[in-house]
Simulated assay, not measured.
Amino acid sequence: MIQPEPDVQLNGWVKTKPLYRNNVISTIIQILTKTLVIAEMEVRKLRHDPTDLVVRAVQPSLWLLIFGQVFTKIRAIPTGDLPYLDFMAAGILAQSVLFVAIFTGGMTLIWERDLGVVHKFLASPTPRVAMVLGKSLACGVRCLSQIFIIYVLALLLGVKLNLYPLAVIQVLLIVLLGAACFCAFSLIIGCLVKTRERMTGIGQLLTMPLFFASNAIYPISMMPNWLKFLSHINPLTYQVDALRGTMLANGSSIYGFGWDCIILLLTLVGLTLICGRLYPRVAM
């Protein structure tokens, strides 16, 4: 039997309407807080295997030392007034971030699923978006070590770097955004595949097309029209463009640092929402 509501409110009872604005702010704060918790937990894993950071730097170092040195001497790729080794340094840093993000995000997710860790997180009230953002942010922090390695190697090779504090901060921001984008992309693949072997194969299949369909090692003006179209929808292109404009002392950006950041940020938001919807599939 439903009791009628009294005409007069009892003492101490106040009828209040929930404030939509407070609910939105509270939700955002909750997502940010749990994102930082997930990121801190992921970063702590580096203490168990810090040598992984050094191993990840071998491939970009070889690109600079061998590919860069050879193509600088033969002058086969026109880069204007910018020496080819300078032109390539920003692209190799972006390539290093791409490889680390692709092979860290999805692979770690599948490993945690096999250990039963993912099931425990899915049973918690943690928002799925926070799980994705936390792992993506942690991947960005992991990639910061690549900046130090590439900078040291580039200075030894005579690359003219922009070492002003503001430029360095901008490089840190771009690396974080780029790593988060490609880590979220890798997590989407990890939600769809079932084995680590398949994840490795798909990762190798995707990294090279993303790398060569960008302006990392040659300018977009050299590309055929169909490849130009692919480069314009490739997030790596905008990451390289931003790095080339901030990392180098005499570098320049085609699209502008602000536009590059917006593209990477929108890509990260879109991939995070998609991955958040697919995340429960990991436990299936």
Rank of each mutant, 00 (worst) to 15 (best):
L153R: 00
C181V: 15
I102V: 15
Y164S: 15
W111R: 13
V168F: 13
L98P: 04
L82T: 14
V193A: 07
G158D: 08
G190K: 11
F71R: 05
A123Y: 03
D81T: 13
T108E: 13
A167Y: 05
V141W: 04
G106S: 11
R128A: 05
L177N: 09
L161V: 13
G158E: 10
C191N: 14
A123I: 02
A90R: 03
L176Q: 12
P127W: 01
P78L: 09
A167K: 05
L176T: 05
G190E: 12
F121E: 09
I147V: 15
L166G: 00
H119A: 14
R128H: 14
I150S: 03
D114R: 10
G68F: 02
K120N: 10
P165M: 13
C143W: 00
G116Q: 08
P125N: 11
R128L: 02
V118D: 00
I174G: 08
L137F: 05
L93G: 10
V100K: 09
F87P: 06
I110E: 04
D114Y: 06
A179L: 09
L155A: 12
C139D: 10
M88N: 13
L115F: 10
K73I: 12
C139W: 00
L109C: 09
S145E: 01
G178I: 08
Q170L: 11
F67Y: 14
P165R: 11
T195R: 10
K73T: 12
K73W: 06
A130Y: 00
L155K: 10
Q170N: 14
L93N: 06
L98R: 06
A94P: 10
T79A: 08
S136P: 03
L82D: 07
I150W: 02
P125H: 10
N162F: 10
V175P: 04
V132F: 01
P127C: 06
F99P: 00
A167Q: 07
A94Q: 09
V129P: 00
A89C: 11
G80W: 07
L133N: 04
G158M: 06
K120Y: 14
A180H: 08
V141P: 00
I110A: 00
A90Y: 02
L161T: 06
C143H: 02
D114S: 11
L172W: 13
F185H: 02
I169S: 13
V159M: 08
I74L: 11
V70P: 02
G190I: 13
C183K: 08
F182L: 13
G190R: 08
G140T: 01
Q170M: 12
G178W: 08
L172G: 10
Y164N: 15
V97G: 02
A123V: 01
I189C: 09
C139V: 08
R142P: 00
A180P: 09
I77V: 14
V159K: 03
L98Y: 04
L133D: 05
V117W: 07
L155P: 00
A76F: 07
